[in-house]
């Protein structure tokens, strides 16, 4: 198929001159803002509304979660470094950074699984109280998004390795990157709203 080869490729003729895939991606991310907005709103509304313990202050280990946050931030950095490599057509290095991003993502998800299990053993389940309900569902939704991102990263690596990506490999990397960074900024908000803002145990 001639149109996917390196230099014979036609310029994509779109009305705006912008690639359709990228417009679609931004529209999707805009839509995701509303999704996480609704989840975070639920969490905020029910802050301090639990009628029984355990309460956040008894259970959170801010230091542990801070490390997780650093890991996710670092994965955003490796993601953009992969894009830089792709733009320089250094595809081996691109794949290396992608793998690093996926590994950091897995570390984050693994950390989350560990966190969930330890909270569970401390007596906080999905059904214990409103805190458990809103905490697990909000961070769980985020974790699922990270997991989907990891799948996309690994597919990207595999397809690039097998030579099944279009010649301009930077474009798909940029698209997956947009999603990945979005998941990161959602975590920035969650980290602040859920973990950092102190929450007193309700009196009574």
């Amino acid at each position: 198929m001639a149109d996917t080869t390196a230099h014979a490729a036609p310029v994509e003729h779109t009305s705006t001159g912008l690639p359709s895939t990228k417009l679609a991606m931004w529209l999707f991310l805009a839509s995701e803002c509303l999704l996480f907005g609704a989840l975070i709103t639920t969490y905020v509304l029910y802050r301090g509304a639990s009628t029984t313990g355990p309460y956040p202050s008894e259970i959170f280990d801010i230091r542990y979660t801070s490390v997780s946050s650093f890991v996710l931030l670092a994965s955003s950095l490796t993601m953009v470094l992969s894009l830089t490599a792709a733009e320089k057509r250094d595809f081996a290095r691109m794949r290396l950074w992608l793998v690093a991003t996926a590994l950091l993502g897995m570390t984050f998800v693994g950390g989350q699984v560990y966190e969930f299990t330890s909270f569970y053993h401390e007596g906080l389940s999905l059904t214990t109280n409103l805190f458990g309900t809103t905490f697990y569902v909000l961070t769980g939704f985020h974790g699922v998004h990270v997991t989907v991102g990891i799948l996309m990263l690994l597919s990207l690596v595999g397809m690039s390795w097998a030579g099944r990506l279009p010649d301009d490999q930077a474009f798909p990397v940029e698209m997956v990157g947009l999603y990945w960074h979005f998941v990161d900024i959602v975590w920035i908000v969650i980290f602040t709203v859920v973990y950092l803002i102190p929450q007193a145990k309700p009196a009574g």
């Binding site: 805009a30 839509s31 509303l34 999704l35 989840l39 109280n129 409103l130 809103t134 939704f141």
Partner: peptide, 25 residues
């Protein structure tokens, strides 16, 4: 649709969790 559907999706998930797994939304 792009801006309204995610809101109901969250509400429906919360309902689903309440019904299926006994959460308290």
């Amino acid at each position: 649709l792009v801006f309204a559907l995610p809101i109901i999706t969250v509400a429906l998930f919360e309902m689903l969790f309440d019904r299926r797994w006994g959460t308290h939304f």
